[in-house]
């Protein structure tokens, strides 16, 4: 299958080819790939793509996957409407 048809990040439509291209250009940390391709920045927050990208980096660097750091997990766990947060905060006061 063509690498440009294999979607790694479903939130931002990033393909395997996009990732391999940047790895070859020397961007070999997850944080670099995240900033240039938006992987891990969409609604799923990297829950789908992070492990796949980690494997690609590990293969490229000939390292074990567990030695490759991935992105920092940030709040929120799930998307919440700003209005709901504002209303919730009112009840607490």
């Amino acid at each position: 299958m063509n690498k440009d048809k294999i979607i790694i990040c479903r939130c931002s439509d990033v393909t395997l080819e996009d990732i391999h291209k940047l790895l070859e250009e020397g961007y070999t940390s997850f944080e670099d790939l995240k900033r240039l391709l938006r992987i891990g920045m969409g609604p799923c927050q990297g829950q789908t793509c992070a492990e796949l990208v980690r494997k690609e980096i590990a293969n490229f660097l000939h390292q074990k996957a567990e030695t490759v750091p991935i992105h920092k997990t940030r709040p929120l766990t799930i998307g919440v409407k700003l209005r709901a947060i504002a209303e919730g905060a009112k009840d607490e006061n």
């Binding site: 609604p43 940030r74 998307g79 209005r83 905060a89």
Partner: peptide, 20 residues
């Protein structure tokens, strides 16, 4: 911030926050 958005830009309040 959610309160400030609800005050100035109420329509944006309908959007989900995905990361901070």
């Amino acid at each position: 911030m959610a309160k400030t958005v609800a005050d100035i830009l109420p329509k944006i309040g309908e959007l989900r926050v995905i990361r901070q």
